[in-house]
């Protein structure tokens, strides 16, 4: 049962001095958590804040996974790499296209598992799932992310939404509530 959904914005503005830091993007797009977390979780002591801490700690893995993916790609296509500058730019296309958006389980706490998902535009979704007696299947998690991604795409289609700002959309919230409710 999902207890927390967070959307973390992409980050392109960070100075390269901090290659590990990507969370600066969260400044203008703080992780979006919803009131439903309290309802979804069985532990009433878990607050938004604590979920925030978990989400924050999971971001390291997201970065690492993404980086690994890049390296694997580069290693896997020596021909492309050797082709030089022109090929490099063209090489980005298939890379992005083929990258698995679903990042899998990122980390786990005593009672929670954290799953990650990153869109091609580097928007990161993090879902915290409470470990209950009924284990969630990987497919369920994937489905959740897919719905989330769909909802996010709808949101981005809204011409009045400025990308990178905090999300205030009833529809989006509705989807998230549905995910949290396990519907």
């Amino acid at each position: 049962m999902a207890v927390c959904v967070a959307v973390i914005g992409k980050d392109v503005k960070r100075p390269p001095i901090f290659p590990v830091q990507e969370e600066g993007g969260s400044r203008h797009d703080p992780p979006r958590r919803l009131a439903a977390v309290a309802r979804g979780g069985t532990n009433p002591q878990m607050t938004d804040l604590q979920y925030s801490f978990i989400v924050s700690s999971a971001l390291d893995i997201v970065e690492e996974r993404v980086q690994m993916g890049h390296q694997a790609f580069k290693g896997g296509n020596p021909a492309l790499a050797a082709a030089g500058g022109v090929a490099l730019s063209s090489g980005d296309g298939p890379q992005v296209a083929t990258r698995e958006l679903y990042l899998g389980a990122l980390t786990a706490q005593e009672e929670y598992k954290v799953y990650g998902y990153m869109t091609n535009t580097k928007i990161k979704f993090v879902i915290i799932v409470e470990e209950t007696s009924i284990p969630l299947r990987e497919n369920d998690i994937r489905m959740m992310f897919r719905r989330l991604h769909g909802a996010f795409c709808d949101l981005m289609s809204n011409p009045f939404y400025l990308p990178g700002t905090e999300i205030h959309s009833k529809r989006f919230e509705g989807t998230i509530n549905a995910i949290l409710a396990g519907q």
Binding site: I17, G24, L49, F53
Partner: peptide, 26 residues
């Protein structure tokens, strides 16, 4: 350091704001 809290307020101003404010506040 992961929460990017700097005890020196002047450091903050160099690179603008960093990190998640809510967590930092906590």
């Amino acid at each position: 350091e992961g929460y990017k809290i700097s005890l020196n307020p002047s450091e903050n101003s160099i690179f603008g704001f960093y990190g998640w404010p809510r967590l930092q506040m906590q």
